[in-house]
């Protein structure tokens, strides 16, 4: 009896979580442009999507931005974690303290603070300011993903490599980095996701004529969203679903040693604090 109610409750929560997603997917096949009635099944939004230069431009900007910011954040963040291994505990906790600020801060405050920085330094806002901002909020994900792995790392392999005459840089790339790789990749994927989905910080640091998918959607909310946007996000959602499936659930072989995890902002905080505190 208790388990019956449990399952029912679980089902209700699932319906709550997925109702909007199902709605969007259904709308992407709706012939009628009006949201409120069903005009029959169509694929025209899917075919029209690729000819809509405005949406495709916003899509390209979003992907390029996500890729570049994740890449730069991954390099800076991994280097920072490596450097921190050689620091005293006090210096390390100072850096980790700063790292936690963007994670716990409200996005609107982060966005506004960066906007003020750009205004005060008289930088004209556009792709570059958004890129700088995205790198800034992405680095903490990389650090919080890579730092725990460093703690689990066996240092003697690195020292053995040095004893055998390897240059430190060579030893790092041949011995340390392979062990870190899955954590580095997780950090990259998380950064990519955060950048892809960000609206608030982009909203405050963008300039005129610049649009990511999120800002485009926001500007269209009042006048009605083009159904081609539903089609695009349905495609993106299903792509990610398939990718996640292949990355994490390899149906044919054994699991990779270090599983690549994709986590959300808050989950990172939770899991990093779960591992004996955030430094």
């Amino acid at each position: 009896m208790k388990s019956f109610f449990g399952k029912m409750y679980l089902t209700l929560v699932l319906i709550f979580l997925y109702a909007p997603i199902a709605t969007l997917m259904i709308l992407s096949f709706n012939q009628s442009k009006s949201r409120s009635h069903w005009g029959g099944f169509t694929l025209e939004w899917y075919t029209g999507l690729f000819e809509n230069e405005e949406i495709m431009a916003a899509f390209r900007t979003t992907i390029i931005l996500a890729f570049l910011s994740a890449l730069i954040a991954t390099i800076l963040g991994t280097a920072a974690c490596t450097g921190m291994q050689f620091m005293k505990k006090r210096e390390r906790s100072f850096i980790m303290g700063i790292t936690n600020i963007p994670m716990l801060n409200a996005d609107i405050v982060t966005g506004v603070s960066l906007m003020l920085l750009f205004i005060a330094s008289r930088v004209s806002m556009g792709f570059s300011t958004v890129l700088l901002s995205h790198i800034t909020f992405n680095i903490p994900y990389v650090i919080l993903s890579v730092m725990p792995r460093y703690r689990e790392l066996n240092r003697s392999t690195y020292e053995a490599a040095l004893d055998l005459g390897a240059e430190p840089v060579y030893a790092f790339f041949r011995v340390v980095l392979p062990d870190l790789m899955s954590a580095v990749l997780s950090g990259f994927l998380m950064s990519f996701t955060m950048s892809l989905d960000d609206f608030i910080i982009t909203h405050f640091t963008q300039g005129p004529g610049f649009d990511t998918l999120s800002t485009k959607i926001y500007s269209e909310v009042k006048k009605g969203i083009n159904p081609e946007v539903y089609a695009l996000s349905t495609i993106m959602f299903l792509t990610v679903l398939v990718l996640l499936f292949f990355v994490n659930y390899k149906p044919w072989g054994k699991q990779p040693t270090g599983q690549i995890k994709v986590m959300t902002k808050r989950e990172v905080i939770v899991s990093s604090s779960g591992r004996g505190g955030r430094l």
Partner: peptide, 30 residues
């Protein structure tokens, strides 16, 4: 791993986080 000079690897991020995390917050107050 005890060569302290290697900690320079964290320098770019340290500069970055001061420039893009701490200073912007100070700007809000300013």
């Amino acid at each position: 791993m005890n060569e302290r000079r290697n900690s320079f690897l964290a320098a770019p991020y340290l500069v970055w986080s001061i420039g893009f995390i701490l200073i912007p917050l100070i700007y809000i107050l300013y």
